[in-house]
Amino acid sequence: MNDSVSPLTTGQQVLPQQRRSRGRRLAQLLLQGDRPYALYIAFAILLVVFSFASPWFLSIDNFLNIGRQTALVSIVAIGMTFVIIARQIDLSVGSTLALSGMAAALAMSYVGDNWIIGAIAGIGTGAIVGALNGVLTMRLNIPSFLVTLGTLSAARGLALMVTTTRPVIITNDAFVAIFGEGSIFGVPVPIAWTLLAVIAGILLLHYSVFGRQIYAAGGNPTAALYSGINIRRVTTLAFVLTGALAGLAALVLSARSHAARPDVVQGLELDVIASVTLGGCSLFGGRGFVLGTLLGSLIIGTLNNGLVLLGVSSSLQLVIKGAIIVAAVAFTKK
C-alpha cells in the first residue's frame, strides 16, 4: 500500500495554513498600537451604523455638533498624549480646566475687560498647575498618579473657593467670538482651535527634538538618561503643555457658556484618557501619536452623539466608555 501524499493533497493542506497565516498577520497589522488602521475601520463602522439607526445623524449640522462637543476632550487629549508617552499620567486636567476658566473670567472682570488678558490668565493658570504636577512628580519622585490625584482635588477646591461656588459671567463679546461662538470660513471656532492644537501637537511630537526626547524618556528612560536627555525637564514640560492646553479648553468652554463655572467637566479625565488609549497610545510609555488621539476622541464623541440620538441613558454611556478604556489598554499592552 502506497503511503505517500500526493502533490494535490499537500497543496490542499498548505493553502489553509497560508490563509490562516495571512489572517494572523492582517489582525496584527490592524491591532498594533502605533498605527490607526483599526481606528479607521471602527470609525467607519460607527458612521454606518448610526446613519442607519438615526435619520438625524448623517447631516452636516450634526457633524459640526460632534466637532464642537469633542473640542474640549480633543484639545486636552493632545497634551495628555505627551504625558502618557513619557510614561506618566495627569488626572487633574478637569479640575485644571475649571480653575483656568475661573481665572480667565476673574481677570477680565477685575484686571481689565480685554480678551487677551483673559486668554493669558486662563492658559497661564493651566500651565502653572501643569508645572506644579511636573515638579512634584520629577523632583520629589512621587508617582504622577498620586500627585495629579492631589492637584485634582486642590484645583477643584480652589476653583470653588475663589467665588464661593458662584459662576462668573463673561460679558466680553470679543472673547466670546474668538473662543466660543465665532466661525472661520464657516468652521466654528471650537473646531478651529482643535485643528490648531492638533497641527501644533503633530509638529511638536513628530517633527521636533522635544518630541523625540519624549519618546525616548517613555520608551527607555535608562537609555535616554545615558544619551544625555534631561528626563526631568522633558517630562515636566509635557505636564506644562497639558496644563496649558487644559487652559485653552477652558477658554473655549467659558466663551461658549458666557460664564465660568467651578463645577464644570467633572469626569473629563475619563474621556481624555479613553481617547488617548483608544488612539493607540500605550499607558506603559514610549508609543502614541497625535492623529490617533484625535481619531480616538472623534470615535468617543461620535459614540456619545449616536447613543444620545438613540435615547441611551448617560449611565450606560459611562459603562461603555469604561469598557473602551479596558479594551484599549489590552490591545496596546506590550
Rank of each mutant, 00 (worst) to 15 (best):
G94T: 10
G112F: 09
T96K: 12
A103L: 02
G94S: 13
G118M: 05
D113Q: 09
L99K: 00
G118C: 06
G94H: 14
T96F: 06
S95I: 01
A119N: 03
V111E: 02
A107R: 04
I120N: 00
A119T: 15
N114A: 08
L106H: 09
L106G: 08
Q88A: 15
W115P: 10
D113F: 07
M102L: 10
A119C: 07
A121D: 05
S100R: 03
G112Y: 11
A104F: 10
L91P: 12
A98C: 09
N114V: 03
D90E: 13
A105H: 00
A119P: 02
A107S: 15
N114T: 06
I117N: 02
L97G: 09
W115D: 01
L97N: 05
I120R: 00
A104S: 15
Q88V: 10
G94E: 08
A98D: 03
I89S: 14
L106S: 12
N114M: 04
A119G: 01
G122L: 02
V111R: 02
G94W: 09
A103F: 08
V93R: 09
L97K: 07
S100V: 06
G94L: 10
A105T: 02
V111D: 00
D113R: 08
I117Q: 02
V111A: 14
G101Q: 04
G122S: 09
T96H: 10
A98M: 04
A107I: 07
A121R: 03
A119W: 04
A98Q: 06
A98G: 11
A98F: 09
D90H: 14
G122R: 11
A103R: 04
I117V: 15
Y110Q: 12
I120E: 00
G122E: 04
I89H: 13
S109C: 01
I117C: 07
M102N: 07
Y110K: 14
V93A: 13
D90M: 11
A119Q: 02
I120V: 15
S109Q: 14
L99E: 03
I89Y: 13
W115T: 05
I89Q: 11
A103C: 08
L97P: 07
A105D: 05
A107Y: 11
T96A: 12
L97H: 08
I116C: 01
A98R: 05
V93L: 14
T96W: 02
G94R: 11
A121S: 07
A98W: 04
A103Y: 05
A103P: 04
M108H: 03
G101T: 11
A105P: 01
I120S: 01
I120K: 00
S100E: 05
A105S: 03
G112R: 06
W115Y: 14
L99A: 10
V93S: 13
G112Q: 12
M102P: 06
I117M: 09
A105M: 01
A119F: 13
Y110N: 09
N114Y: 07
S100C: 09
Y110C: 01
L97F: 10
A107P: 01
Y110R: 12
G118F: 06
L97A: 10
A107C: 06
G94V: 12
A103M: 13
L97D: 03
